[in-house]
Design a protein around this nucleic acid. Structure first.
Lengths: 206, 206
DNA sequence: CCTCCATATGACCACCCGGTCACATTCCGG
DNA sequence: CCGGAATGTGACCGGGTGGTCATATGGAGG
């Protein structure tokens, strides 16, 4: 969505602008982010920004796209294990790697969190699109789990999806909580997933 | 936190201001809510608002307090069943009644949703305080469930709390999704809770 | 009736926002 | 070296914000 001019820019300058924009959208959700702050920190004129993008929304959509591309790339190794691991193992791997992403690229992580909490209409449709992208692989995983019998066949598929989605969101929200102990956090993710796996009602067989 | 002047106001006028503020904070999260819009819709002068409250934040805190008081009152009947119902029955009752609250007072519901999604610092401490308030009764419920053995003793208590909290948030977020069928929604809440109760791994005993 | 104090008012302030545009600068092919 | 196209610039615009304050209004007690 950026104009051609943006891609004609020398790489350094383009990266600087991109990075400053990521930083701003990490600090504030779309509505609260300030274009003026971005251009000022990037050391360019306001008018220049409008040579590169048609407006604030355009810039935001570009940044969102870049950030998700990066995350998708980072998560690729998880899906390559798809055939070797069962649903529960894969889910654990998925969340642990998402956590690594959040630690390695905290700004990008913050951008995604701000993004899916945004209630802006201009952003919502794009959001739905992205959510589909995000969930496709996970949904496949779930289907396979149900088919193979690793997941109880009596479970309501919609409800399972809902629960996992909710817990995923909460887990990821908390990925960067200050005061979290890196060593224990992986174990914590697994504890949470175990609750989902076994359920709260005691099991007779163990 | 409002000034004494506010409580000297005739009841009608006080209610009008309160209602318009609730409406605005239902439409927009704190940062995006407009004081000018509130006073304009309430038909009072901007200066008058500053006779009643010390500022926007003060007004917001008052509204939040009122809204949560209303919700707490509405949920009271649930906790009176505490001794008659087990953990799972109580949880079901709790969410179904929360949903009734959302249907009956959609604006107040929206205010709560905006509130706990807010990332404003001025609001965060207050929020933590409120969350404690909200969770106290639920945490008690959970403790009792663990003690009585209705909940598996092998479950990690923190993880259980985390999962329930996450699902609660997601359920409540979706309470007012347009296009939701009121009759089926209660059943859906129960489906979701059943997933938590039984877990995803198949059970041998059934 | 007059005084005094609480209350009501809206013009006004400084500041911010996203966006525009006439003009300056840079670059490159002829 | 020139001329035209591409790019860079920041003052400026209209409109919004939360907050202030001198002034006007009202009502209760002496």
């Amino acid at each position: 969505m950026p104009k051609a001019t943006f891609f004609n820019l020398p790489g350094k300058k383009r990266d600087l602008i991109t990075n400053q924009a990521v930083q701003e959208f990490a600090r504030h959700p779309y509505e609260g982010a300030s274009l003026s702050a971005i251009v000022s920190r990037a050391g360019i004129a306001k008018g220049s920004m409008y040579q590169y993008f048609t407006g604030k929304k355009d810039l935001y959509q570009y940044i969102i796209q870049e950030v998700y591309e990066k995350k998708r790339e980072f998560l690729k190794p998880v899906w390559e294990e798809k055939d070797r691991l069962n649903f529960f193992e894969l889910a654990s791997l998925y969340y642990r790697r998402s956590w690594h992403f959040a630690r390695k690229y905290p700004l990008h992580h913050r951008v995604t969190v701000n993004f899916w909490e945004s209630r802006d209409i201009a952003v919502r449709d794009e959001m739905l699109h992205k959510k589909e992208v995000r969930s496709t692989e996970f949904l496949e995983m779930l289907e396979a789990g149900l088919l193979s019998g690793v997941i109880s066949r009596s479970a309501d598929k919609d409800a399972v999806w809902f629960v996992y989605h909710a817990v995923a969101k909460a887990l990821i929200d908390n990925f960067l909580d200050p005061g979290v102990n890196p060593e224990s956090h992986e174990a914590y993710i697994n504890s949470v997933l175990t609750v989902l796996e076994l359920g709260l009602r005691p099991r007779k067989e163990q």
